[in-house]
Amino acid sequence: MKPQTDIPGAGTPRAESRVLLSSTPRGARLARALAVQQFTEWCACPYDSDEARTVALITAELAANAITHGRLPGRDFRLTLRLLAETVRIEVTDARPERLLPATAPAPGGPGAVTGRGLLLVDAYADRWGCAVRDAYTKCVWAEVRTGHPRPLT
């Protein structure tokens, strides 16, 4: 799937969660844990469900890219989760708008390559994904995961 370069008609979220995290491996691990926690709370599904694992994998990849390729000293990255009608949107905003994503997910490296598969995983597991530059200081990489039937919010 070709990534989309903007965030199309997201609509009004039923719920939203935002947090700033340090651009460190610890911040990336925390992003993954927080995303799964929030997702399972919103959708009333178990932590080991396929949907929760998909949210964990996508969040981990987007956060890892933010701390690896989108990091500037002293700048954090932001994790935003939005519960939409039938999807959960995961957004990771970093401080490097000049480092845009490639037009398509890159080809996998050779069998011995240690890195370079993150966007391939996002492309394989997300229903939609893309990148948006909203201002001169940040870039947002987002992905959507379909939810089964989110429970009503109270």
Rank of each mutant, 00 (worst) to 15 (best):
I58G: 05
Q4Y: 13
P111N: 10
A33Q: 12
A107G: 01
T80N: 04
G112I: 09
L30V: 12
C140D: 12
W42C: 00
P97C: 06
P3R: 04
E51H: 04
Y47A: 15
L101S: 03
A15V: 00
G116K: 01
A64M: 11
L20M: 11
D76R: 15
T80C: 14
R75W: 11
L34V: 07
G110P: 03
S49D: 10
P8H: 09
W142A: 00
E91K: 03
W42V: 00
A132I: 02
D76L: 12
I58W: 09
P13W: 00
R71F: 05
H149A: 11
P111D: 14
A132W: 02
Q37S: 10
G109M: 05
V88R: 08
L20H: 12
G109H: 06
H149D: 13
K139F: 00
R18V: 13
G11L: 09
Y137H: 15
A132L: 06
R29C: 12
L83E: 02
P150R: 08
R146E: 00
T104M: 14
K2D: 07
V133S: 03
E61M: 08
E144D: 10
T115D: 01
L119N: 03
D48C: 08
E16W: 00
C45N: 04
G74P: 14
V36L: 10
P46Y: 05
T87V: 06
T80W: 03
A63F: 14
T40K: 02
T54E: 06
A107K: 14
L20S: 13
R117N: 15
R26S: 07
D123S: 10
R18T: 13
P106H: 08
P152I: 03
R134K: 13
G109N: 00
R128G: 04
R71G: 01
V88W: 10
A126M: 05
R128L: 08
V92N: 07
T40G: 06
T104C: 12
G109I: 04
S49A: 14
N65W: 00
R128M: 06
A126N: 08
A28E: 07
K139M: 08
P102V: 03
V122P: 03
L119V: 03
L72T: 15
C140E: 12
W42N: 00
L119T: 07
L30Q: 13
A107S: 08
P150G: 11
F77P: 09
